Structure formats: C-alpha cells, structure tokens
Simulated assay, not measured.
Amino acid sequence: MPDVVYTFLLALGGSLPVVLAGLVALRALRGRSVTAHIVVILLVTVLSVLAGIVGAAMRMFISDHDLHVLLIVVGTAATVSLAVGLWSGRRLARASMWAAEAREREREAEARRRELVAWVSHDLRTPLAGLRAMAEALDDGVVSDPETVADYHRRISAETDRMAALVDDLFELSRINAGALRLSVADVPLGDVISDAIASAAPLAAAEHIRIVAEPSGGTAGWPVVRGSVPELSRVVNNLIRNAIRYTPPDGTVTVTGGQDAGGGWLAVSDTCGGIPEADLPRVFDVAFRGAPARTPEKEAGGGLGLAIVRGLVEAHQGAVAVDNVGDGCRFVVRLPTADRPVRAGMGHPAAPAVAG
C-alpha cells in the first residue's frame, strides 16, 4: 500500500471518532447560544487534527522530539483558535441579541403606527361626518331657526378647533420623531411658564368645576430656573395640566408644584383621577394610548398624543418624565436641567407634595 494512502487511513482512523462525537454534541446543543456552537466546532476541528496526528505518529517512524514539537504547535494553534472563537462567538451572540431586540422594537413601532393611524382616522372621520351633516343642513335650509343655526355654528367651530389641534399634535410628534426639533435654549423661569399655562387652562377647569392649585416648593422662591425653550416647555406644562383636568372628576383638584434639588429642576402635576391601573403605567407615554375608557366615560378622550409629545419634548431637553399613583390620583413628574445642575440619569422623584383639597 502506498505510504500516502496508508498515512491518510491512519489519520482518518484517529480523527473520525472525534468528528462523530462533535456531531453528536452539536445535535445536543441545538437551540443553545452561538458561542457554544462555535466552541464545539473549533474543538472538533483541533481535536480531530490532533487525533489524526497522534494516530499516524503511533504507527510511523517519527522521533519523540518531532512529535513533541508538532503537539506544541497544534496545542498553541488550538488555544489561539479557541480564544478567537470564544471572542467571536460572544460578539455574534450580542449582535444576534441586538438584532432580535431591534426587530422586536420595529414590530412594536409598527404596531403603534397602525394603532395611531386607526385612532387618528376615527378622530378625523367622526367629526368630519358631523360637520358635513351640519353644513348640508344649513345649506339646504333644513335648519332655519336662529337658535339652532347658532348652535350648529358653535359646534362646527368647536369641532374645527379640535381637529386643528389634532393635526398640530401630529405635526409636533412627527418633528420629534424625525429629529427635526430645534430648541432655542435659554434660562427659563419655570414659575412664569406654569403661571401662563394655568391661566390658559383656567376656563376649561372652571367649566368642569375643577380647581387648579400652584404650590412651589419652598415658597414663592421655590420655582426653579431651568435651561430650555419657552414654546416647548409651555407645551409640556399645558399638556400635563389639560391631561389632568380631562381625567379629574368634577369638584376635583389639580395641583402643580415644582422646585430644585440635587438632581436639577423639577415640576409635578397631580390630579384626583382615582389613579391609573398598574398595568397601564408603562404605556402612559406611548403614542395613541388612552387608557381605560371607563375612567372618564363622560369626557372626550382626546387624540392620545399629548403625553407622547410631553415625553418627546422633555427628552429633547435632556430631561426625564415619569408617572406614579399618589393618594387618590396620579402624579406626573418632569425633571429638567438647570444652568448649574444638569439632570442626571437615575435620580429619584422628589417627595410628593401635599395636595390641596
């Protein structure tokens, strides 16, 4: 038998059992991490080479010195290969995990987009149908008495304003999501922003028999001066106050407080809505999330965009917003950077203020 064929058979006899054992191990590791598979493949490769060398060396004329040198070379190569394989496997595992998380986030975002389209379609289609019916009734002379005509005009104006506000919310949300928001940052007295927002929301609160109370931490000097853009901060405070009014029952109270601590400036809006179900708390700031309709069956739920806009604008200011159930209602806390104390990640909420009755 030629030496080449004989050597081949010796090497095959030594490496074949290792390869078969490796196949069994890979089958047993099905569903395990990428790193485990790569390590097994490298071990099978190296050990099969080593077994083939040993099998051939035991039946051939080779000096002990040459065999030791060969084993050292193969062992060194095996060590390096296993180290590189382990490093590569961990990187591939992390990349696979990140890719899976990215796909999951993409699926969630797509689901939220579909939900948003459904909500907005409903919110636009329903009032548009009413507007068309009222306009046709006025054009055809079906409604002619002055009182009803005036009521139709009032309702048309109110629905038009509501749809304009919805379109404005959509535009603001698209700017935030597209990264097209440009802030004109300056030192802003938060007390002035809150005062203007309360004055703007006062007619809505009066119509619902809801009291708005402003309680700065530490007295009148307690309102912090934050770094931010006035129009966007005004929108944040307005959205929070109007959201609190929307979900507070008649004769309830909305409390606005704020101050400054080691984490920077903060403001909080508390209401007496009865609280938010614990399962809904993580989704409060999601686009088009409106919560349980049973909370406020007699009030218009809104477009479900206000709190999503709040989160986007606050995060654009390098701040943070959170919500918790407190007492007989819930409390939204916004943290904003100040000129000398930027907001730090992981800071806790300030102590809950007393809600005025």
Rank of each mutant, 00 (worst) to 15 (best):
residue 242 R to F: 06
residue 344 R to C: 03
residue 144 S to E: 12
residue 249 P to H: 12
residue 17 P to G: 00
residue 257 T to L: 01
residue 328 D to F: 08
residue 178 A to E: 14
residue 103 R to E: 15
residue 290 R to V: 15
residue 244 A to Q: 02
residue 61 F to Y: 08
residue 135 A to G: 12
residue 355 V to H: 11
residue 264 G to T: 10
residue 123 D to H: 03
residue 150 A to T: 14
residue 30 R to V: 00
residue 69 V to W: 06
residue 44 V to K: 02
residue 191 G to A: 12
residue 213 V to H: 08
residue 257 T to D: 12
residue 325 N to D: 06
residue 139 D to H: 13
residue 218 G to F: 01
residue 221 A to C: 02
residue 8 F to Y: 07
residue 339 A to M: 10
residue 140 D to V: 04
residue 35 T to H: 12
residue 188 V to P: 04
residue 87 W to F: 15
residue 193 V to E: 07
residue 174 S to E: 15
residue 122 H to W: 09
residue 227 R to W: 00
residue 22 G to W: 10
residue 26 L to C: 06
residue 42 L to F: 00
residue 127 P to K: 01
residue 77 A to I: 05
residue 28 A to D: 01
residue 285 F to D: 01
residue 124 L to R: 11
residue 176 I to R: 01
residue 134 M to C: 00
residue 274 G to P: 03
residue 8 F to S: 06
residue 35 T to D: 11
residue 175 R to K: 15
residue 349 H to N: 10
residue 37 H to V: 14
residue 84 V to Q: 09
residue 275 G to E: 12
residue 144 S to T: 15
residue 171 F to Q: 13
residue 254 V to I: 13
residue 29 L to T: 03
residue 171 F to C: 08
residue 297 P to Y: 04
residue 105 R to L: 14
residue 197 A to V: 08
residue 129 A to W: 06
residue 278 E to S: 13
residue 187 D to C: 07
residue 224 P to S: 02
residue 261 D to K: 06
residue 34 V to C: 03
